[in-house]
Structure formats: structure tokens, C-alpha cells
Nucleic acid binder design. Sequence first.
DNA 1: TTGATTTTTTAACAAATGATAAAGGAAAAG
DNA 2: CTTTTCCTTTATCATTTGTTAAAAAATCAA
Lengths: 190, 190
Amino acid sequence: MEEHTGLFKFFDGIHPISAKSKEALRKICFELAMPKGKDLQSIGHTCKTIYYVEKGLARTYYYKDGNDITESFAFENSLIARVESLFTGNPSKKGIQLLEDSILIGIPSPELFNLYDQHHDIERLFRRIFESAYVETINRIESLQFHTAEERYKDLLSTSPNLLQRVPLKHIASYLGITQVSLSRIRAQI
Amino acid sequence: MEEHTGLFKFFDGIHPISAKSKEALRKICFELAMPKGKDLQSIGHTCKTIYYVEKGLARTYYYKDGNDITESFAFENSLIARVESLFTGNPSKKGIQLLEDSILIGIPSPELFNLYDQHHDIERLFRRIFESAYVETINRIESLQFHTAEERYKDLLSTSPNLLQRVPLKHIASYLGITQVSLSRIRAQI
DNA sequence: TTGATTTTTTAACAAATGATAAAGGAAAAG
DNA sequence: CTTTTCCTTTATCATTTGTTAAAAAATCAA
């Protein structure tokens, strides 16, 4: 039986759950290692797994007019999933790709959602997790709605200082909603 | 005792709850009518009420560099709240203003969150509600990230055809992330 | 209704970003 | 180590959007 220590420490920081619930949750989780560049989840399939990044780095991405767009990054000690598919059951237009050799813990969502019925505290834990993610998304809207690309770039660097060392600029550009050329120009100007 | 029929029909469409839970929920809700132009919730206070729009129209807004920015609209038969404050407990930089004479049903969040403990189905109902809202927000990010202002305007009109008749263009412009002048230019060009 | 206020449009110019192409660097593969 | 591939920068020009100001149109209040 795996321990998944990092994951449960992460959970404890959000909403402590009973030993029983922990055990039930632990039972459905699985660990996996994957190399840089691989797709953890491919475009077109319904999202049925939430991943915790134990080590490494992942991103969600999709194609818009043939261009590769990064929707989000997930560093160590955070969760990643294709939420719009997870909650609707629709196939996702997005994929999850690893930007570094990574170790992940997968949480199968059908099993997780089943646990909600018996373990009220697990439902509450994940409610809190997604509420926080929702708030972050709202703040990101504000950023996209009324900050210049330069402001968004500076904000991103101050929030994730190590992003630059670990993520190709082209992904950062699309995440910010601008072209790579435009980001390069902004960087030159600073 | 008020009935709040519209609200409970709305709830039923998302996740049916027991008669007991309905009664408990009904007890904490209150109805109020407010005229056009009034602030339902003012900037600077922590969000402690979720509102259901029974009749009328509301918007959430904030000030960015002195400019009035609309974050969202809420028509009849939908909920409105300042989520980033509701879930964090932080004072909100945003306000809720009525764009028409409206009838609303208020749901006090501290009382609501208390009900979660006794009424699992109420927690689940609101989890679902906010999960859906989260998905909508994710889709809006995609729209802001990689659609032109003209595309966003057309999309908005096709989603909410009656928006134009009920909302001043300046609010629509800031909602789309552009200036009023820019929106006017786009409209002229179509 | 009339006058005042607010909203919307138009115009001219400035600034930011996109598109394309080409060159320079860095990283990966053999 | 060398070659190939991918990533990043630079340059040029086109397009979009912002800014400011003023006029036109619509709405509101007395």
C-alpha cells in the first residue's frame, strides 16, 4: 500500500478528514511516473482523473486555430485536472502534458465522487479545493480583462519566480494571451 | 412564510433536496425588492449573501484606475454573489448593482454554510452550483485569452440576445474587456 | 415639455499587439 | 563533437485597441 504522504499533507492543509476517510481515499489513489514531454491525458477524452503533482511540472493545453495554447501550469504540491470536462462529463478539448520528468498521484474521479456519499468530509475537502481554484480563476479573469500584457507578465513572474527557469517562453506567452514574439518584445523592453 | 417558488424550482433543476432540507433552506431566505441603480451590496464589505434574481437584472462591478468595470451580469433565474469574497472571507473590492427594478431572494451565507453540516444534500446542491459557475468562468478565460473583441461581442449577443435591450453599452464594453469607444467602433463596422 | 444629465457615436492620433520572415542560440540526438 | 531540431529574438509592416475630445442621441428630472 502506497503512502502518498505529500498528497495527504496537502489535503490536511485544506480540510482535515477522518482516518477512515483517509484510508478510503488512499485506496483509490495510484502513483505514476512519466517523462518530460509525454501527455498525461490526451485531447478528446473525458477527464476522469485528478492528478496531484508530487514532483515535476505539468500544463493543460489546447489548440486554437492550430496554435498550442497553455491554459494552466501545475507545479509540485498542486492539483491538475481538466475541470470543464470533469464536471460536465463532456470530452475535453484540452490535454495535460508534462514539462518535466514527473511523479504524480492520480485520483480517479468516478471513484472519488462515489466516496462523497459515504464520506461527507471528503466531499467537503474537494468542495473547498475547487472553491479555491474557482476564486483563482476569477482573479485571472480580472487580470486578462484589464491588465496590459506587460503587467500580466510581471505579475506572473512575481507569483511564480521559478517559472522562467522551468517553462519555455512560448508556453508562458500563450498562457498570458499573447504571441511569443510579443512576449519577446516585452522582455527586451524591461 | 414566503414561498420562494422560483428559487426552489431553480434548485430542483440542479440537485433535488429533501423536504426537510427545503424547509431549513426556506427559513433562512428572505425576499427583497430594490429599485434600478441601487447597490445591493457595496464595495468594501465582505460578501455574506448570495442573491437569486427573481425579477430584474444585476451586475457585479469594481473600479480599476477609476474606471467602472463590469465583472458579470445576472438575469432572472440566476444567482449572483461576490464569490472571491464569499469563499475567502476577505472584504470584496466589488459591488453588486441593480440595472433594473428587481425582486431578489437573499441567502445569508453564514447560515447557509451552517446548514451544510446537518443537510448533506444542501452542501451538494451548492457544490454543484458553484462547480457549474466555475466551468463557466473557465470558458470565459478562454474567450478573453484568444478571441478578438469583435468575436467576444458577437458571442455575447448570441448567448444573451436581450442583453443589448437591457444593459447600457458601456457596461457591455467593460465586461468584454474593451473601452466603450472601441465597442462603438466594432458595432459601427458590423 | 424643457433643460440637464447621461449615453453613444465619431474622428484623429498614439500605443500595443499580431503576422511574417529571418537570424541567432540553445538543447537534443546521433 | 557535430548536426539537427527547437526555441528565442529581432525587424518590418499591418491591424487592433486605447486616448482624448467633441458632437449627437437618448434618458431623466423638474
